[in-house]
Amino acid sequence: MTEYKLVVVGAGGVGKSALTIQLIQNHFVDEYDPTIEDSYRKQVVIDGETCLLDILDTAGQEEYSAMRDQYMRTGEGFLCVFAINNTKSFEDIHHYREQIKRVKDSEDVPMVLVGNKCDLPSRTVDTKQAQDLARSYGIPFIETSAKTRQGVDDAFYTLVREIRKHKEKMSKDGKKKKKKSKTKCVIM
Rank of each mutant, 00 (worst) to 15 (best):
I139F: 05
T87C: 03
V8Q: 02
Y40K: 00
E31P: 03
R135W: 09
S122R: 05
Q99V: 10
G77W: 04
K178H: 12
D173W: 14
K182M: 04
Q129V: 07
L53C: 06
E37K: 01
E63L: 02
N116S: 12
K176D: 15
V103W: 15
T158K: 09
K104N: 14
L53E: 03
K178E: 07
V112W: 02
K128L: 05
Q61K: 12
T20F: 00
D154Q: 07
D154K: 06
M67R: 04
Y157V: 11
I142D: 02
L19T: 14
V109E: 02
T144S: 11
A18G: 09
V45A: 11
N26K: 13
M67K: 03
L120A: 13
Q22A: 10
G77P: 01
V29P: 10
Y32S: 01
V81I: 07
E91W: 02
D105V: 03
E76G: 03
R41C: 05
T158E: 05
L52R: 05
L159C: 08
G115T: 11
D108E: 07
E162C: 03
L79S: 00
G151K: 09
F78E: 00
T74P: 12
Q25R: 05
L23W: 07
I36V: 07
D119H: 13
T35V: 00
D57M: 00
Y96E: 08
G13C: 10
F156R: 01
N26P: 09
D105W: 02
D47T: 07
D126G: 06
V109A: 08
T50R: 11
K172G: 04
A59N: 04
I84M: 14
G138L: 02
N86G: 10
K5H: 09
I21D: 00
R123C: 10
D54W: 02
E143S: 05
N116I: 15
S145P: 00
G138A: 06
L56S: 07
K88M: 05
E3H: 03
G115P: 05
I139S: 05
Q99R: 09
A155H: 15
I139E: 12
D132S: 05
V125K: 06
N26S: 13
E76Y: 14
H95W: 06
V186F: 13
S145Q: 02
S171G: 03
D69K: 03
K147E: 08
S106I: 09
G77N: 01
E107K: 10
P140H: 03
V186C: 13
G60H: 02
K128Q: 07
L120P: 15
I142P: 02
H166V: 08
V186W: 06
F78S: 01
R161P: 01
V81W: 00
N86H: 04
A130S: 07
A59P: 13
Q99W: 11
H166K: 11
L79N: 00
K178T: 09
T20E: 01
G10I: 01
Q43W: 02
D47L: 05
T74F: 06
D108G: 06
R97I: 15
Q70I: 04
Q131V: 10
R161S: 13
Y40A: 00
E49Y: 13
F156K: 05
V14Y: 15
F28R: 01
D154M: 06
I36Y: 10
T20N: 06
E37P: 02
F90S: 05
H27E: 13
I46H: 09
A11E: 14
I142M: 04
S17G: 00
G138S: 06
R123I: 07
M67D: 13
K176H: 09
D132Q: 05
L56W: 13
Y40L: 00
Y157K: 12
T124H: 07
K180E: 03
T58D: 01
K169M: 07
N116P: 00
D54Y: 02
L52M: 15
R161M: 01
A18I: 03
F156G: 01
I24K: 12
G48H: 08
I55A: 04
L159Q: 12
C185A: 09
K5R: 11
A83N: 15
K16S: 05
H27W: 15
Q22M: 04
R102A: 09
N86C: 07
T74Y: 09
V44F: 15
